[in-house]
Amino acid sequence: MIVAFTSFKLPKPITREEARAIFLSTAPTYRGVPGLFRKHYVLSEDGGTAGGVYLWNSKAEAEAMYTDAWRAFVRGKYGTDPSVTYFDSPVLVDNLSQQILSDA
């Protein structure tokens, strides 16, 4: 499994309520994306940085999302360029399902 962390410094801070409205408007974009298990939208406490934490099946599937078109979408929505950082996640503790999952 792969965790991708995306972030972008906003041109001006936004409130939690503004972020929630924006995030809800883009959330349908991520439904049914091949290999994407979960996405968490995030906003810094000062409202100056936003992004997402994604859990992917594989890096190849994650990279298929973060295209030039996706970057342009983010730039158009938030007025700034995103960064993407990948982390390997060999084990996941899921307390909702009471499971410990491994990619092996």
Rank of each mutant, 00 (worst) to 15 (best):
A50T: 06
A19C: 06
T67D: 14
A69V: 11
T80G: 09
V42S: 04
H40R: 11
A64F: 03
E45L: 09
L96F: 13
F23E: 00
D46I: 11
L92D: 03
S58D: 00
G47T: 09
Y66T: 10
D94F: 10
V93P: 03
R75D: 12
S58H: 07
Y41W: 14
T80S: 15
A27E: 15
R38N: 08
E18F: 07
D46C: 00
T80W: 10
A62S: 15
G47C: 09
R20C: 06
G48K: 14
R38E: 09
L24I: 11
M65W: 02
S83Q: 10
T85I: 11
T29L: 15
G51F: 02
T67V: 12
L96K: 08
W70M: 05
R31G: 14
T67L: 12
G47W: 10
R38H: 11
R31V: 15
G48M: 07
V84E: 04
D81C: 05
S83K: 11
E63G: 05
G32S: 05
T67E: 12
M65Y: 00
W56E: 00
E63Y: 01
W70V: 05
A27Y: 13
V53S: 03
L36I: 09
L96N: 07
G51E: 02
V93K: 08
Y78R: 06
W70T: 05
E45K: 15
V53M: 12
Y66G: 03
S44E: 01
P90D: 10
G32C: 04
E17W: 04
A60E: 10
G32N: 07
W56A: 02
L55W: 09
T67S: 14
M65A: 06
K59D: 00
F37V: 03
Y30F: 15
R75S: 14
G47R: 01
R71Y: 08
S89V: 13
P34H: 04
W56M: 08
N57F: 02
G79C: 10
G35L: 06
R75Y: 14
A62K: 00
V74M: 10
V42C: 08
P90S: 12
A69R: 07
G47E: 05
R71I: 03
K39D: 03
V91F: 09
P82Y: 07
S25R: 04
F73T: 04
A60N: 09
L36S: 07
S58N: 09
T67C: 13
S58I: 08
V53T: 12
P34R: 03
G51W: 02
R38T: 00
M65K: 04
T67I: 12
S83L: 11
N95E: 14
S89G: 13
Y41V: 11
F73C: 04
A72R: 14
A21G: 06
G51N: 01
A64I: 07
A19W: 08
R16Y: 01
S89W: 05
D94N: 14
W70C: 00
K59W: 08
D81W: 11
L96P: 01
S89L: 14
L55N: 06
R16F: 01
F87S: 08
G51I: 05
H40A: 12
L24C: 13
F87N: 09
G47M: 01
E45M: 07
M65G: 06
V53G: 06
T80K: 11
K77W: 07
R16C: 02
E61K: 02
L43C: 12
T85S: 03
M65N: 00
A72P: 04
D46V: 08
R75V: 09
G35K: 07
W70Y: 14
L36Y: 08
G48D: 08
V42F: 10
F87L: 11
